[in-house]
């Protein structure tokens, strides 16, 4: 039989889901994010062996294990450092870095700034639930100042961090916000982020139903952004500075050239690399 006539079946989202079942709390927004990521990979007709999912530490950072892609469950706050290194060394791979607001904006805040600035061609997803989920509810940089808990009696009283504004000011080339409650819409935006060259930042509002049950109400608050995507940073800045935190959509798409350093000539052996680091 001639093989030329046999068309390959399109890859499905299921091909990107591993046999490990998530242990997130039932109702956690991260389930939907996982579904969106796998759908986005399928939409782009990627193959698991050509994708690496890199994360830090936290409930959300468990995500690489739930995919069939290459995965790296790294160190708290250092997901972007690992992801950047990987992409620079292996530009042929699609690199998706993922984690929580604690991981990305507290301990990893500095890496976030410089990843935006470097503009390496990767996609960074933050599953923002405005709390440290895994460690039982400490406030994060995006926690509202008056959110009270045993760990923050009376609230922190601190102004919240605005990740989208920071990303824009630091040079991210693609900035979007989505809501986990719209997995198909989120999948489209993740696919767009991966397709867009340079550093793409996607903030996903992903409710923590256990520590912040009131976030179940986000589905009534999330709404499509009232403006079209702009490539004008000044326009984007004006819009983002008055943002209510629930605008959904691609809010900025620039055209900065991604950073990719020239590749070395040959591949070093692991022993040679080790020798370089020996004291």
């Amino acid at each position: 039989m001639s093989t030329a006539s046999v068309a390959a079946a399109p890859i499905t989202a299921a091909a990107f889901k591993s046999a490990y079942k998530p242990i997130w709390c039932p109702g956690c927004g991260d389930y939907s994010v996982l579904s969106s990521i796998t759908k986005a990979f399928a939409m782009l007709d990627l193959r698991p062996e050509n994708v690496a999912v890199v994360s830090g530490i936290g409930c959300s950072s468990r995500i690489p294990a739930y995919t069939t892609c290459y995965g790296f469950h790294g160190v708290h706050g250092r997901a972007l450092a690992a992801g950047t290194g990987l992409k620079v060394a292996r530009p042929d791979l699609t690199v998706l870095v993922a984690g929580g607001d604690g991981d990305g904006y507290s301990i990893g805040g500095n890496h976030f700034l410089h990843a935006c600035r470097r503009n390496v061609d990767l996609t960074y997803i933050v599953m923002d639930n405005h709390v440290y989920g895994m460690t039982k509810g400490q406030p994060s940089p995006t926690t509202e100042p008056d959110w009270e808990s045993k760990l923050s009696p009376g609230g922190t009283g601190l102004r919240t961090f605005h990740p989208l504004v920071v990303a824009l000011a630091s040079g991210a080339n693609f900035i979007a916000r989505t809501f986990a409650g719209d997995p198909n819409g989120t999948a489209q935006i993740i696919a767009d982020a991966i397709r867009t060259p340079g550093f793409s930042f996607v903030e996903i509002l992903s409710p923590c139903v256990t520590l912040r049950p009131e976030q179940r109400g986000w589905k009534e608050q999330a709404h499509p952004a009232s403006v079209a995507t702009t490539s004008d940073p000044a326009k984007a800045a004006r819009y983002l500075m008055t943002d209510d935190g629930f605008n959904i959509g691609v809010l900025y798409k620039g055209n900065r050239k991604p950073y990719q350093p020239p590749m070395g000539k040959g591949t070093k052996r692991v022993a040679d690399l080790e020798a370089e680091f020996s004291i």
């Binding site: 509810g137 520590l211 049950p213 009131e214 179940r216």
Partner: peptide, 13 residues
């Protein structure tokens, strides 16, 4: 949970 989430408990439980 409601006690934990305090003032910001908004519309849901």
């Amino acid at each position: 949970a409601v006690k934990q989430t305090g003032r910001k408990k908004a519309a849901t439980s």
